[in-house]
Design a binder for these strands. Structure first.
Lengths: 194, 194
DNA sequence: GAGGCGGTTGACTGACCGTTCAATCGCCGA
DNA sequence: TCGGCGATTGAACGGTCAGTCAACCGCCTC
């Protein structure tokens, strides 16, 4: 008797993760959810809206988590660690969801509507880096905007490695990935003691 | 009287770059190439094969360029710079091609066949990092495999920023991106003088 | 100028799939 | 027990496209 809407969304995540958005049929989602495919249109206007909903709900949560890190008052390098943790641990929490977000959304075709929300993730990282520079923790000869893209790219690529099964993804390895990227990025950004 | 095959491939790159693989029709490619769509099947077995050909031909070239850098005998950090140059400058060379490779191929659905060739790019970066560690240029407490994914991710994300029009991509900025990512990565990987 | 042949055309087919909707179910309140 | 209504079903529709194929073109050769 769980909320059908949720059931459908969860099923859709599994199906999109398995087959990709374009190649999965509405009927597949319905079957996975254990409903007739017509019922999906009782809850969603279209297949597109299902994907958009998955994106909106979960990406919003990610942004929230990032903002909480940002507001924590920790030093900038610790905040970067917090962001890395949030992103990388989401893999263990819900691998299928990460699969969908990484593959379908991050570089979707007409992302006009999503650009703002995706951009907010980059902006948060950028602000953390800028604060680190202002506090003297990070070097100032690096463009924070570019740096934020590089940092996010490193994180996303690790997720991609796990999504594609090309990088080991046990608890151990997730922790190591976290350590590694923070090590590299933070010493790469570190202020050189003059 | 140019080779029709080439004409079709070039047209396909433009169309895939504009509309994405799944949403672009064979007829669109044909129109862009100035031929009847039936003729496409004279040169290619299917729409899939067109994309696969685009990938194979161009990715192979990228791997070749990477291998040339690797064989250059330069120190590891210079080799990383060479790799970054190769990848980032490809944007100015052929933006549409980069668009297609980044969006359609790097995380395509059934990439079983492509995994080897994609993997070779990571392996090359990994070998460069390992050589840097052996030569004492890079710190040894970082897993070269993970580091290669992080480095590639940073590079690809910058390309993505350009693809999405979210990062400025003038000559100036491309050069700066090159400098920035190498700065960050190389000092992030640098051996700490003990 | 006849014959042949690779290149080229575009109408057509067959299948697929998102979406609609009329019919049915089953719960609940009166 | 009845009526009503939201939830649910799945057959049918409509449109889209990848891929096929029979005909045609124009160039070359003999």
């Amino acid at each position: 008797m769980a909320d059908k809407r949720r059931v459908i969304l969860d099923a859709a995540v599994r199906v999109f993760a398995r087959d990709g958005y374009h190649t999965s049929r509405v009927g597949d989602i319905a079957e996975e959810a254990g409903i007739a495919h017509g019922l999906l249109y009782h809850y969603f206007a279209s297949k597109d809206e299902v994907l958009a909903t998955i994106f909106r709900e979960n990406w919003g949560e990610l942004i929230g988590a990032f903002h909480r890190v940002e507001a924590s008052g920790e030093p900038a390098d610790e905040q970067l660690r917090g962001i890395a943790k949030t992103l990388l641990r989401s893999w263990r929490n819900d691998a299928d969801l990460v699969r969908v977000l990484v593959r379908e959304v991050a570089r979707s075709p007409q992302l006009q509507a999503q650009v703002d929300e995706v951009g907010e993730v980059f902006l948060t990282i950028q602000r953390v880096i800028e604060r680190g520079q202002a506090d003297g923790v990070f070097r100032e000869d690096v463009d924070p905007r570019l740096a934020s893209w590089i940092v996010y790219g490193g994180l996303e690529e690790i997720l991609t490695g796990w999504v594609l099964g090309q990088l080991p993804d046990g608890d151990e390895e997730v922790a190591r990935a976290e350590r590694t990227i923070i090590d590299v990025v933070c010493s790469g950004l570190a202020a050189t003691p003059s």
